[in-house]
């Protein structure tokens, strides 16, 4: 009987963790998905995430409004996105290299300005207690869901719809699939990529604000543990499909919650091993998605060259 409860609470904790830990993944992966759909890879999103976390926390602390913090985090991500896009527009510039440089740059800036905000405590984002009917603290904790999660869940189908049916969304796809075709249609490739990278960067920034304003819920330098980079793998796993990005994010979130969940029921061995689950998952996915001989299905045509 005791074992049963243990198993159940692990499952519920993993489910709650999928939502709690997965939310920033949703934003970052959708941002990366949009950027890659336009034919560019932005590895700098890890930087956007950390920058967003710092900016969001600082603005929330200074203004007293966490939502203003989210807005500021998104804006900081947009600015970084624009910078990435502008750098990539130059000839002979490689988007991967720029992405890594941008990641280090943004992380450094965030640490520099964030020093002052490590101590004070900023107002948090509100959450909705879906578990209040239950007396079990495990269920209560698991079903305490942040508003940003719902925003992320709504964003995935919205992005799928945007890419499929709107003029702008189709412009993004054309530019990402074939720059030759885009040129022959008179599209401004650089502008489409600039806007996509900007919006994608903004989403990653919002994801960052979730980290500092909700879970784990404070600003520190070790806040992000590579979520921004894992999102790149996640987008490949999701085959560049926004809905799949949502599911994959939840899967990653669940994997990340495995360690704490097991610890909460008293399984202490292998805590760090289980904490490594999302990284192992990333590796497994990269290996599973790779092919020695071919290109990955669904990959935007511009990457195939």
């Amino acid at each position: 009987m005791e074992n049963d409860i243990g198993l159940w609470s692990v499952l519920i904790a993993v489910l709650g963790g999928a939502i709690r830990v997965g939310t920033p993944f949703i934003f970052v992966s959708l941002g990366e998905c949009l950027t890659e759909k336009a034919g560019r890879i932005n590895l700098g999103l890890e930087g956007n995430l950390i920058m967003g976390a710092m900016t969001g926390y600082a603005v929330s602390y200074l203004s007293g409004s966490p939502w203003l913090g989210v807005l500021a985090a998104g804006s900081s991500g947009c600015v970084l996105g624009i910078l990435h896009a502008l750098l990539c527009q130059n000839k002979q510039v490689n988007d991967i290299a720029v992405g890594i440089a941008m990641m280090l740059f943004a992380t450094g800036i965030a640490f520099f300005y964030g020093k002052a905000f490590i101590q004070p405590s900023a107002p948090h984002l509100p959450s909705i207690g879906f578990g209040n009917w239950s007396s079990s603290p495990v269920i209560k904790a698991a079903l305490d869901i942040n508003v940003l999660f719902f925003l992320g869940v709504a964003l995935a189908p919205a992005m799928a719809w945007f890419l499929r049916t709107t003029r702008w969304g189709n412009a993004v796809r054309v530019v990402g699939e074939s720059s030759d075709a885009a040129l022959s249609l008179g599209m401004n490739i650089n502008r489409v990529r600039l806007l996509s990278t900007m919006a994608g960067g903004g989403l990653a920034g919002i994801g960052g604000s979730y980290l500092s304003l909700y879970y784990p819920g404070s600003w520190s330098e070790g806040l992000s543990s590579g979520q921004g980079l894992m999102a790149v793998a996640l987008v490949i796993f999701a085959r560049w499909n926004p809905m799949n990005c949502l599911y994959a994010s939840l899967l990653f979130g669940g994997a990340a919650a495995l360690g704490p969940a097991l610890q909460s029921v008293g399984i202490n061995w292998g805590y760090y091993l289980f904490n490594a689950a999302p990284y192992v998952l990333t590796l497994v996915i990269m290996i599973a998605a790779s092919s020695a001989k071919g290109t990955v299905r669904g990959m935007p045509g511009e990457f195939v060259k």
Binding site: N170, R173, V174, E177, S178, D180, A181, L183, S184, L185, G298, P300, G301
Partner: peptide, 14 residues
């Protein structure tokens, strides 16, 4: 200048 990953209809409409 056709887009390989899209359908004929998509190519024409876009």
């Amino acid at each position: 200048t056709l887009i390989p990953n899209m359908s004929i209809a998509e190519n024409i409409v876009l």
